[in-house]
Design a protein around this nucleic acid. Structure first.
Length: 805
DNA sequence: AAGCCCGCTGAT
DNA sequence: TCAGCGGGCTTG
């Protein structure tokens, strides 16, 4: 008998167990188990899920210590060799647990749920009275119920006395969806025999079996059978019992698409597009891992280049991944891929249910699709023969995951491209400074599209100085110019998009007498006012409360909400243009699944004159009748305490302006601002990316920020301010002592959100150019202080290349 | 992470 | 003397 030993990474995220453990594979599983399989294994006193990362025929572990695998959960392994390698790289790159890296690559349906079940050993009468009502007929009870009832002591005693046992079990989520169908018996003679045995009184049954006899072996939905033959389910049931047919289960994919596919044809490329495409296909044919930065002004037809590049990979029999910032926000974009490649496309985004996500993932795994369009995590799509990876709107911050594993989709894309020897396209009208700098250095290949594809002119952008408006006595949110322009569109039956730049600036409640702003009791953040529910909400921890009637500090009743929410703008719009039909798109109106799509579709059909919204309308919106775009407050994202605020503002304004006049009709844009002279605003007027780049690079160089320097952020949190401050100082001290002298270490300082979920937060920022010691030193720091931190309740997180600081 | 063992404390 | 608890250790 051969010995088979599986090395397993267990589903426990903790430092001491962040390594493979050996398990024996019982003979019955020898044929089934593979590298990449999920397994159920005993781990200490528990049962946990694990991933097989290696199989071997020997082990260093003494035979009295090694335990067998309890179960193999998959017929096909869920992880590929590539994923296992990628996980090791991610672990090293982002300092995370290997298990976190592995889980990030799989749909959540494949993650385990754990439950504790209490089993009766003997008779229910043996168990102490108070525990008895919790057990069901099978002698089982849910551990949680005892916890809730405060009976843990009694339960523990019962375990000790041997009346009950506690089992830790791994529960899989209901993943594969099946439907019930009716399969008619293949044997015609049998059917005729059944028919002859049916009594004359059972007319319906006879009728049904006759119908079946004409269709031996065929499969129908139960409803189809009933409606075709005019019988009820009860009759069908009886006939099935007699053996004329059988219920079978068929695996189905949930269909997240509501619309039918309308096939579209390839568009003729411009010379610029043609040049870009041939560079990309050249890399594909030569099988080299080249990263292209495709910089094209808004409306220059980047998407068509993507589509034709994908067509090329399909012809070569290879697969493509397309990443978009947040796909549920851009149904138009996904529609373009689906309409070009039809059933070959899977879509993965956060708006899908757990089951739907799993189904899309399985289509990829089983090779049923060749193209994946999805948000950040789709970069892990389990393709085995990748030919192309595309990141659209490459500069977007949503490509960086904010919790462990803190990876950037761009880095994973480049890693996979090297693994598969295929090109990556980073596309944007306004590339991140990092990417553009790399393109200039020759690390990436720069491809530019300078002309709009349909030869339209760029929209005319007017910068409106709101200080002047104030001087003229206009205190409304709409400048005279913008209001006139809206009036004009209403008259011409053209559409307007109004954009409220609300980042870092939402409605809050303020007391006019003492100036108190109502804050979250758990976090140092002012609460956001939601008019619809009349509640104040903390969007960091989810705390909710009703709007106080009097000020909690001074008891004055002059307490009002402040700030410019979309609802307030909507009200003002109604006052100014009572006849205008307004659609509002913000957090409140898009809570429901598919709401984005519904609103955008309605606007596309011309059911409204004005679309009003926040950042979420900036992307992908492409309708021919939009000829006016208004940015109500360009500055709000400019004054955030973030070194990227100018870059973000420039990107946002360029992006939004690009929504106007994409088709035959010319577009016009009004940008309202209190700082018209700021370079981010001035240069966005004509989409002057390169001058902006030069200017912003100068600022970054002065302040030692990326792309000149890399950043690493260490955050320390504790319930007690002093503890948090003290340990942040200790961590900073350690880093200063151990990193090279040319690395600058800033801090400890309070984090930008100084208290979150009742924990005080301090941070330390590391700026470095080249520092090979960084990761080893950080690992050393963790290793040295880990146990002390755990004891004291300190939490420490490390974010290499943080997106927000 | 979480259960378990072992040693310490304190009341019997 | 032993229950009750907390820290440290182990998990294959």
């Amino acid at each position: 008998m051969t010995l088979v030993v599986a090395q397993v990474i267990v589903d426990v995220a903790a430092y001491p167990v962040d390594r493979p453990f050996d398990y024996l594979v019982p003979e019955e599983w020898h044929a089934l188990i593979e590298v990449g399989s999920r397994v159920k294994v005993p781990f200490g006193p528990r049962n946990v899920l694990g991933f097989v990362v290696a199989l071997q025929h020997d082990t260093e572990v003494p035979m009295n210590k090694i335990k067998p695998v309890t179960q193999v959960l998959d017929i096909e392994p869920v992880l590929t060799e590539e994923m296992l390698e990628m996980a090791k790289w991610l672990k090293q790159q982002t300092i995370c647990y290997e298990i976190d890296a592995l889980q990030a690559m799989l749909p959540s349906a494949l993650r385990a749920k754990y439950e504790k079940i209490v089993h009766l050993c003997g008779e229910i009468e043996d168990v102490p009275k108070p525990l008895q009502p919790f057990f069901n007929r099978n002698g089982k009870a849910d551990f949680k119920n005892f916890e809730k009832a405060g009976l843990l002591h009694e339960l523990k005693a019962a375990v000790k006395d041997g009346f009950v046992t506690i089992e830790n079990s791994v529960k899989q989520q209901g993943a594969v969806k099946e439907i019930r169908k009716v399969q008619i018996n293949q044997d015609r003679k049998k059917l005729e025999k059944i028919e002859s045995e049916i009594s004359k009184r059972a007319q319906k049954q006879k009728q049904l079996v006759q119908w079946m006899a004409e269709r031996p072996g065929q499969v129908f939905l139960p409803d189809e059978v009933c409606s075709e033959t005019g019988v009820t389910m009860a009759v069908l049931q009886v006939v099935i019992e007699k053996g004329a047919a059988a219920f079978i289960k068929e695996e189905v994919y949930r269909d997240p698409f509501t619309k039918d596919i309308v096939k579209t044809d390839f568009l003729k490329l411009t010379d610029e597009q043609e040049t870009a495409l041939s560079a990309i296909t050249g890399a594909m044919d030569a099988q080299v891992a080249e990263t292209f930065l495709l910089q094209g002004i808004t409306g220059s037809g980047k998407t068509e280049v993507y589509l034709q590049a994908i067509q090329h990979t399909l012809q070569e029999g290879k697969e493509s991944i397309v990443l978009v910032p947040e796909i549920s926000l851009t149904p138009q974009m996904t529609e373009r891929f689906r309409s070009r490649f039809g059933e070959l496309v899977a879509v993965m985004h956060s708006g899908l249910s757990v089951g739907e996500k799993y189904d899309e993932w399985r289509k990829v795994q089983q090779g049923k699709v060749k193209v994946v369009v999805g948000a950040r995590s789709a970069i892990f799509a389990p393709f085995g023969n990748l030919g192309l990876i595309i990141l659209d709107e490459e500069h977007e911050s949503t490509y960086k995951q904010e919790d462990s594993p803190r990876y950037h989709a761009r880095d994973v894309a480049i890693w996979r491209s090297e693994y598969h020897k295929c090109p990556v396209i980073l596309g944007s009208a306004t590339p991140s400074l990092e990417s553009f700098a790399r393109a200039k250095k020759g690390v990436y290949t720069l491809l530019t599209l300078k002309k709009r594809a349909m030869n339209q002119n760029l929209p005319t952008v007017h910068i409106v100085d709101m200080r002047e408006e104030l001087k003229l006595g206009n205190r409304s949110m709409f400048s005279i110019q913008l209001a006139d322009a809206i009036r004009e569109r209403l008259a011409k039956k053209e559409q307007t998009v109004l954009f409220l730049n609300r980042r870092g600036y939402s409605s809050f409640v303020l007391c006019r007498d003492c100036g108190t702003v109502v804050e979250c009791p758990n976090c140092d953040i002012s609460l956001t006012y939601h008019r619809f529910s009349e509640k104040l909400k903390c969007h960091y921890c989810g705390h909710e409360e009703y709007v106080p009637e009097v000020c909690p500090e001074c008891a004055s009743d002059h307490i009002r909400f402040f700030g410019t929410g979309t609802q307030k703008v909507e009200e003002e719009l109604h006052k100014l243009f009572p006849e205008a039909r307004v659609l509002r798109m913000d957090v409140d109106t898009t809570n429901k699944k598919g709401a984005h799509e519904t609103i955008l579709d309605a606007f596309g059909r011309g059911e409204a004159d004005i679309l009003l919204g926040t950042q979420m309308i900036a992307k992908g919106l492409d309708f021919p009748n939009i000829t006016l775009v208004g940015v109500l407050s360009a500055d709000t994202s400019l004054h955030l305490p973030d070194y990227r605020s100018a870059e973000r503002t420039f990107q946002l304004l360029t992006q939004v302006s690009g929504r106007a006049g994409r088709h035959e009709k010319a577009g016009e844009v009004f940008v309202q601002t209190y700082t018209p002279e700021h370079y981010a605003i001035e240069l966005s007027k004509e989409q002057l990316y390169e001058p902006f780049y030069e200017r912003e690079m100068y600022v970054r160089r002065q302040a030692n920020y990326p792309p000149y320097y890399y950043l690493a952020l260490i955050q320390v949190s504790h319930e007690d301010v002093m503890m948090a401050a003290e340990y942040a100082a200790r961590a900073s001290e350690y880093l200063r002592a151990n990193l090279s002298f040319n690395v600058s270490i800033i801090g400890p300082t309070t984090a930008s959100i100084s208290r979150l979920q009742n924990r005080y937060r301090y941070q330390c920022l590391i700026k470095y150019k080249v520092e090979p010691k960084l990761i080893p030193v950080l690992l050393q720091l963790i290793k040295l202080y880990r146990s002390e931190w755990i004891k004291k309740g300190i939490q420490l997180t490390i974010d290499l290349d943080p997106s927000m600081i």
